[in-house]
Design a binder for these strands. Structure first.
Length: 394
RNA sequence: GCGUCGGUGGCAGAGCGGUCAAAUGCUCGAGACUGUAAAUCUCGCGCCCAUAGGGCUACGCAGGUUCGAAUCCUGCCCGGCGCA
């Protein structure tokens, strides 16, 4: 616990936004920072050395997935996540709370995400949820083999302590945007109780990890306020903000929450990573983000650019020998052409995902680094305006 | 030369008298993706108009049988295999 600290270096004048340093047992993270997702103790398609090379500050892994395989005892026996996966820098683990959503309410609802109601996919609609929630925790039917497994605040804390990330999260229920107010109230009550239990177990277990509590409340401002007040009152080392939002007023929601959370503690916005949302979050006092966007898009053939996404499968790139993204200094853009990436994707070569993911991680990590720089330089407003002006879509 | 099997949409390959513009896979075209059930998913893929739907041309080529043919018959062309 003594190894963990947060220091604010500069603020955005008149706003909640700030730049700072989070110190962890595995080194510092300069914030704001975009944290790369490595769910199963691996950043999909990319080696840790490459993740480090683009300048990523930290990696976030997942409790549910590692609990199922290889099992937290195995990771513990390996000497913890850092040694197991050869990532020497700061790490976070999500608590499994997101799987309450993705394997529960969202499961089989084709296309549903944290922002909208999704579109129906008939094939999936017959599938039953794999997560069942009760007051004490969640029972999962493993998506790997159907075996039942259980996650509670106690188990999540024990697993996360075994995994050994620097920053860990309280076990929560990530609700769907479809949830009505009455349900949100019940879910929030659960999440709050679980937060208290998580904290108690965390203290009992000891260790160097910093535990972050998670604010929920969905799209309802009164619930968000209530949640921020309650979670803040418990005194966590830092705070996560999770759940679903209305895309349009995510900024207002974050402003509300972050004006309640203590200024002296770091704040992590869970699972958010589109360009406009990063600006909104940082401006409203978010210090760290994690998101699957760079790696998922990378595997699906899309490159993120300042102007929007570039789909490498488009016919027009087959004979385009120019750099994938003009002006980009990432490894991929310095050495390969659009035509080559187009070919790799069409050919189903694994290097396609690797090269595209490297670019996308580079893009997001460095966008947030640039925002940090602009805050330190007192130039945030101008930088934001300039950047968003270039953005056509996404 | 004789025999035999076969020639179906960009490719592979179902279909073997009507429910066939023709299964399925791939390719191809477009789109999606926000704490990773995700190297995934969705949509389109003969031509023309269209909202539903309708019209036209198509299953090697040319004839024929039939109310009706990708499906049956005849001839021709092409390919595989076998025998000379």
């Amino acid at each position: 616990m003594t190894d963990f600290s947060f220091k604010i270096e500069a603020k955005i004048p008149g706003r909640l936004g700030r730049a700072g340093i989070i110190n962890t047992p595995h080194g510092p993270m300069a914030t704001p920072a975009f944290i790369v997702v490595g769910t199963k103790a691996a950043v999909k398609a990319v080696l840790p050395e490459q993740v480090a090379e683009v300048g990523a500050e930290a990696v976030l892994a997942n409790t549910y997935h590692l609990y199922l395989a290889p099992g937290s005892e195995t990771v513990k026996a390996a000497g913890g996540l850092h040694r197991f996966m050869n990532w020497p820098g700061p790490m976070m683990t999500d608590s499994g709370g997101f799987q309450v959503f993705s394997l529960g309410a969202a499961f089989g609802q084709g296309g549903i995400n944290k922002f909208n109601q999704g579109r129906s996919i008939e094939k999936n609609q017959v599938m039953a949820p794999l997560a069942r929630i009760d007051e004490e925790g969640v029972t999962f039917k493993s998506h790997l083999d159907g075996k039942l497994c259980r996650l509670t605040p106690e188990i999540s804390m024990k697993v996360q302590h075994d995994l050994g990330a620097d920053i860990i999260f309280a076990f929560d229920e990530c609700t769907t945007p479809q949830a009505e107010y009455d349900y949100q109230v019940k879910a929030l009550d659960r999440t709050h109780r679980w937060a208290k239990e998580s904290l108690a177990w965390h203290r009992r277990l000891g260790g160097p990890q910093a535990l972050f509590g998670i604010v929920q409340g969905g799209r309802y401002n009164d619930l968000r306020r209530q949640s921020a007040e309650f979670i803040a009152s418990l005194g966590f080392a830092g705070y996560g903000i999770g759940g679903s939002f209305d895309k349009e007023d995510i900024a207002a929601s974050l402003q509300l929450v972050n004006s309640i959370l203590p200024e002296s503690a770091p704040r992590h916005l869970l699972g958010i990573g589109e360009i406009v949302d990063l600006f909104a979050g940082i401006e409203e006092g978010i210090d760290t983000f994690d998101c699957v966007t760079p790696t998922r898009l990378g595997r699906h053939g899309a490159l993120q650019t300042a102007g929007g996404r570039l789909n490498l499968f488009k016919a027009e790139y087959r004979q385009d020998f120019s750099s994938p993204v003009t002006g980009c200094l990432c490894y991929t853009c310095r050495h390969y052409s659009r035509a080559y990436l187009s070919h790799l994707f069409r050919a189903g070569e694994m290097a396609a995902a690797t090269l595209a993911s490297i670019h996308n991680i580079y893009f997001f990590v460095n966008l947030v680094k640039d925002i940090r720089r602009s805050i330190l330089d007192g130039d945030y407003r101008r930088f934001k305006q300039k950047t968003l002006a270039k953005l056509k879509v996404n």
